[in-house]
Write a protein that binds this DNA or RNA. Sequence first.
DNA 1: AAGGGAAGCAACCGCCGCACG
DNA 2: TCGTGCGGCGGTTGCTTCCCT
Length: 274
Amino acid sequence: MVRAPCCAKMGLKKGIWTPEEDHILVTYIQQHGHGNWRALPKLAGLLRCGKSCRLRWTNYLRPDIKRGNFSKEEEDAIINLHQILGNRWSQIAARLPGRTDNEIKNVWHTHLKKKLKSNHTEPESKPHFYSIKMEQELDPLDNSSCYAKSESLDCGPVSPSQCTSSGTSSFTTGDDNNNNNDACMKFDDYQTNLPVADDSFWSEVLSAGNSDEIVNEFQAFGGDPRVNVGPTDGGLSLDMYNDNNMDFWFNNFLGAGEIPELLEFDMSIRKAVL
DNA sequence: AAGGGAAGCAACCGCCGCACG
DNA sequence: TCGTGCGGCGGTTGCTTCCCT
């Protein structure tokens, strides 16, 4: 594929945006919408490439952007979501209204990473381990992807037995091959602090009725009743039957940290398609 | 007050996936 | 089925500001 010439080669402007340029861009989008980003700068009379315009708009000029410092709740949400989603900044941003992926990425690298590191050195801090499956169609007995990751990628001494005994160590979706890498990195990140979740642990979780509690909590918060919690391959699985449920789960529980005790579970979240 | 390093942040770069012809 | 164009994403860069000595 032939790459289009970059902005500089086409004589387009780069660097910091001026207030005048901002004004032109905002005015144009308010009047016409952005439509085709590539065509926009020419139509709007800007000496910028479309990519630069899109970035400026989505990261700075969009009216629904929340400016200012991140609240404690937002920071906690980012930390929680990052542990679940890894460096998927856009997905994290999608669950934090008014915040952009770029902003979150910056905050992570400048504040939260350090904060997390310093917290880990404190004796009281608990290691949080999330191992989540998000799959379009998931065979509960199939751990092959987990084994394959452990062996084919350089992700440290992860044995197949660790994969199964801890319930899961995979994080995969049907539409994103990169998730294998992420899962691998995630496991690598946490393996030093990995709490052992053996069979007796899961027996206790399930016999204590926690699966029902999870469903009750979920529905009490207004989630779609079509959610199911049950044991699977040594762990606990949470079946989400639609995108709304998935978003609801992230927004109200994981992201917001409403029921943080759930985060201690080694849980498999599955997106089932009816 | 000045200089240098650290931190913060906006913007860029290059890759990828998807839609479409 | 393949090539192409576009939007989107994550990693990185580099400028600006802050803070410490």
